[in-house]
């Protein structure tokens, strides 16, 4: 039986795939970044369709910000950000297509062949989900969550250290 959830899953799944494909099919870097933004928003909506409300909203908010920053970086660092020069930005194209297709077919094959057991019909509502996720973070997964915090701090320090101008350190 085709449910509303399945129809929404297919619509927004196809949107995520279409925009994901457009990322690598346009010459304009700004369009690439906006396509990736649209793909990530479609993934966030897929989370909402699968009734993971908190993660869906978080995904849309985080990726909206990250992709906007990515668009700025692309305009800064690309030789031809508008795509007017029709630069060729590909290498090993046939190998890449083969790798992408083979991996997709293998994963789809595994998904279809596996015995997934019984599908859950009972699941917590949005308020209960937030409470249980909070309890998970504050109890069993507290160390993992704190590790994520330390990892973010390490990433920030590493990013600043890598991006520092070499000229300044030579002058010292």
């Amino acid at each position: 039986m085709i449910s509303v959830q399945l129809i929404l899953l297919i619509i927004f799944g196809l949107a995520a795939i279409w925009f994901g494909w457009r990322v690598f099919m346009t010459s304009s870097m700004v369009r690439s970044a906006l396509s990736l933004l649209a793909s990530m928003v479609a993934i966030g909506i897929l989370f909402l369709v699968m009734e993971a409300e908190f993660l869906g909203v978080l995904q849309i908010m985080m990726m909206g910000t990250e992709m906007s920053i990515m668009a700025i970086f692309m305009m800064m660092y690309m030789m031809d950000p508008g795509g007017l020069g029709q630069m060729d930005m590909y290498h090993q194209k046939n190998i890449s297509i083969a790798a992408g297709v083979i991996v997709t077919v293998l994963i789809v094959g595994a998904a279809l062949a596996a015995d997934w057991g019984t599908i859950a019909t009972q699941f917590p509502g949005p308020h209960e989900q937030n409470r249980l996720l909070g309890m998970e973070i504050l109890k069993r997964s507290m160390m993992i969550f704190e590790t994520a915090g330390v990892t973010i701090l390490t990433g920030m320090i590493a990013s600043i250290a890598v991006a520092l101008s070499i000229k300044n350190s030579v002058e010292k």
Binding site: A16, I17, V23, F24, S96, V103, I107
Partner: peptide, 17 residues
């Protein structure tokens, strides 16, 4: 799972090409 597999394949193609 199929949607995720196709997206993963597109991402792999992009990262390699």
């Amino acid at each position: 799972l199929i949607i995720a597999a196709v997206l993963f394949g597109i991402g792999l193609y992009g990262a390699l090409s």
